[in-house]
Design a protein around this nucleic acid. Structure first.
Lengths: 174, 174
DNA sequence: GGACTATGGTTAGAGTTCTAACCATTAATT
DNA sequence: AATTAATGGTTAGAACTCTAACCATAGTCC
């Protein structure tokens, strides 16, 4: 097995400027670090919420419905940032689990409103503490100031990327 | 449609301590911010690499093979942090695209080594600048010091979560 | 040496998400 | 009013990822 030591890169990569070749190490890429972080977060949270029958796929939609109950399926898609087919299956799943219902609109027969059941609504008080707990564990050892900085920097790069994708792709983030 | 204004939360959620109820807003959760960031990053990068026929699924494995060529499939799984069935399909895909080959081990007939083709290896010089570009766009407007801080904080929370998941789950991050 | 156990890889089936194509309903235009 | 546009939702098919079950090979232990 060929294991190049740090800095032992093929000639055409060595020829690249240092600002580029640092990315040969994934740990130097923000994308990689975000991915690892997200996966860890998602896993930890799902382990907790699954005890109440809530999967990570349902979670994002449930959270949005707590903020705004009764949107159309299209509106829900936009708020959550997912494409419509994704919303279809997520809502199917919420309905199947008894957390939400589909309610056909009366003034426009194309539209369907998604509404929480009492069960779905009641879960907020149960599940929010779990998010808090996972956030706490993730930030253990950081000061409040550092956490605030992290939030600010993350929001900044997310803003940058939303802007890039909007002007270039002209479309939502898949 | 019911749109609760900020702070207009159901009684059982209002009853929660403030440290918990802040998470009613996704923008206050690190997990949400990581997820958005990762998705933006992944989308931007894939738009570029796909012009060379490299998908985001292949990307992570390719990057690891650039660091260490010829691992067994099991070793590759561990390095990349994916489960074995995931590696099977990823390697299938790399082989199909002519970027890597499966090479049965001679000393242990259970093992299979994964080795880059010249094409797969040559892509490093082409694709690394793309990662650099996406990182640059994502961090536009941040100082070098802020970027360094972001990397440090992300590595810190990733370390925390790896530790949590190791001791509690006893298993890899899905 | 033959029966357990461990290791490496694969297959089967599921969940989450996407794009593309489609159908139903409403709005706009001529 | 009839045709065309736009809007809301669904279905079909794919990519990526997982868990669980499985097969093949190698190592261990009586």
């Amino acid at each position: 097995m060929t294991v190049p030591v740090d800095g032992h890169l093929p000639p055409e990569v060595q020829a690249l400027p240092l600002e580029i070749s640092v990315y040969a190490q994934p740990e130097n890429s923000i994308g990689y670090l975000l991915r690892m972080g997200f996966r860890g977060f998602s896993t930890m949270l799902e382990r907790k919420t699954s005890t109440h029958g809530v999967s990570s796929g349902q979670w994002r939609f449930l959270r949005q419905l707590w903020i705004e109950d009764g949107p159309t399926q299209r509106e829900l898609s936009v708020r959550v940032g997912m494409r419509e087919p994704t919303t279809v299956v997520a809502v199917n799943s919420l309905v199947k689990s008894g957390l939400a219902v589909r309610e056909p609109s009366v003034e426009d027969r194309r539209k369907v409103h998604i509404r929480l059941t009492p069960l779905g609504r009641s879960l907020q008080a149960t599940l929010l503490p779990m998010v808090a707990d996972v956030n706490d564990r993730a930030t253990k050892g950081l000061t409040k100031a550092e956490i605030a900085t992290l939030l600010r920097l993350l929001r900044h790069i997310n803003g940058n990327m939303a802007q890039e994708l909007e002007q270039i792709g002209g479309d939502a983030v898949p």
